[in-house]
């Protein structure tokens, strides 16, 4: 059993590396197109966001399916989300600003979409740091409260995406939809539905 879990973890780890491998080879072979930096920036950002949403989907999925083992992969997914977001920030810092701190700071302060994105990135750092078992033990109940920030971070990330598109909002809308669904699931749909039907009945009565 333990051995199976270890193998599965290695499998998920390798799966999470696939986007990175694809990106690297696309840049090397030229498949990334004439503007590889833009390609890297978009891909790392999108994979960060996708993995973040996937991380948030773990516990509702576990509840819906009853597969308790899903939780074993949540930390790795979350850390990979953090990894791709770090890459995303690095692309920005290295290629857009040649690592010039004043110009990075100026961009963050002046551009709301960059500010929102940076905020999401900074908020992810304490979550990554406190992801170890010993930190979980040490923080106890506060750990859960702290890690609820991941919903806020995902919302900031979707907002960041929304704010930078010119006219085509379809893609950020999809992510917003997924996030909204996850938030709704968090409200325990069973209870929520029960409450809603109850209140509907009341409304009907009043009418």
């Amino acid at each position: 059993m333990v051995r199976g879990l270890l193998l599965a973890k290695i499998g998920v780890f390798l799966l999470c590396l696939i986007p990175l491998v694809i990106m690297g080879s696309a840049v090397v072979t030229g498949a990334a197109g004439p503007n590889p930096v833009e390609y890297l920036s978009h891909e790392t950002g999108q994979w960060g966001l996708r993995l973040l949403l996937l991380t948030l989907a773990v516990s509702p999925l576990r509840r819906l399916t009853g597969w308790a083992w899903l939780i074993r992969f949540r930390r790795m997914l979350g850390l990979f989300a953090f990894f791709y977001v770090c890459c995303h920030f690095l692309v920005f810092a290295v290629f857009d600003h040649s690592l010039g701190l004043p110009s990075i700071l100026e961009d963050i302060v002046k551009r709301p979409y960059i500010l929102v994105g940076t905020l999401a990135f900074l908020l992810l750092i304490p979550l990554a740091i406190t992801s170890t078992n010993s930190m979980m033990r040490r923080l106890g109940r506060r750990w859960k409260a702290l890690h609820r920030f991941s919903y806020l971070i995902a919302a900031l990330a979707v907002l960041h995406f929304f704010m930078l598109v010119k006219v085509d909002t379809r893609e950020p809308l999809i992510y917003a939809g997924v996030l909204a669904a996850l938030l709704l699931l968090r409200l325990r749909p069973g209870q929520w539905l029960a409450r809603r039907t109850a209140s509907r009945r009341e409304v009907q009565k009043e009418a």
């Binding site: 004439p34 503007n35 930096v37 833009e38 290629f95 857009d96 600003h97 040649s98 002046k110 551009r111």
Partner: peptide, 18 residues
Amino acid sequence: DHPRWSQARERRVGSFFR
């Protein structure tokens, strides 16, 4: 600047830096 981004620098397609 564009209201959302800087126009001070540009990336020449084909080069990595601005």
